[in-house]
């Protein structure tokens, strides 16, 4: 199996080649873990190319879809269902907001780099997030939202962690269109990102700290 070719196919968003090669891996022509690693490297490169203005949102959405399919193909071969070495993180769209295209892109990337993503879905109440973090011992929280009112819901979520006495046990990153450095400060989150690539880097660094 030519893993470099697989990585390149991912970078150039060549869906037929990626799927063909992953099917070959599933058929015994290679190692599933190495193949997924190659896809992930490709995907991270796509994230960087997005930041550099070479790729655009449609490309990111497409890339997430290709990655999800690639993972599905070899999943049965992976004992633990894939690399989850970075531990758990929560990801969701905040209360009263039902947009999830951005969140789904971020999820595909986070899973690809080794997070076990607890995707709580859309319109998720602060209490649910706090409760899940408590029960499952999750320390990294990713909040997504694109409506103006999502900023208020993000703030409420941060306050709910404070009220539960858990604020200093978790790291919170917010993302979505209305998010800026200024909103991050108003919300009281630890970090913010519009680029999923930056989000991944931040969460990886946090996972290494914990």
């Amino acid at each position: 199996m030519d893993y470099e070719k697989l990585e390149q196919a991912m970078v150039s968003l060549d869906e037929p080649t990626v799927l063909e090669m992953m099917n070959a891996v599933a058929g015994g022509e290679g190692d599933a873990t190495l193949a997924l690693e190659a896809c992930t490297k490709g995907l991270e490169a796509v994230g960087r190319l997005f930041e550099e203005g070479v790729y655009f949102i449609p490309d990111l959405i497409f890339c997430g879809e290709v990655m999800t399919q690639a993972t599905e193909i070899v999943k049965p071969l992976l004992a633990s269902g894939g690399d989850k070495s970075l531990g758990k993180m929560i990801l969701c769209t905040v209360k009263d907001d039902m947009h999830d295209i951005g969140k789904n892109i971020v999820k595909a990337l986070m899973e690809a780099v080794g997070f076990e993503v607890l995707d709580l879905g859309i319109d998720v109440a602060p209490e649910t997030i706090v409760q899940t973090a408590k029960e499952q011992g999750v320390k990294i929280i990713g909040l997504s939202g694109v409506l103006s009112l999502a900023i208020g819901s993000m703030r409420e979520t941060v306050l709910a962690f404070e009220a539960a006495g858990m604020r200093d046990q978790v790291k919170i990153i917010i993302g979505g269109n209305p998010v800026t450095a200024a909103t991050c400060e108003l919300v009281g989150a630890d970090e913010w990102a519009l680029s999923p690539h930056k989000g991944v880097q931040v969460c990886k660094a946090w996972a290494a700290e914990f």
Partner: peptide, 9 residues
């Protein structure tokens, strides 16, 4: 201004 500033500013 953006709605976000009016909410939290």
């Amino acid at each position: 201004p953006k709605a976000e500033l009016l909410q939290l500013g």
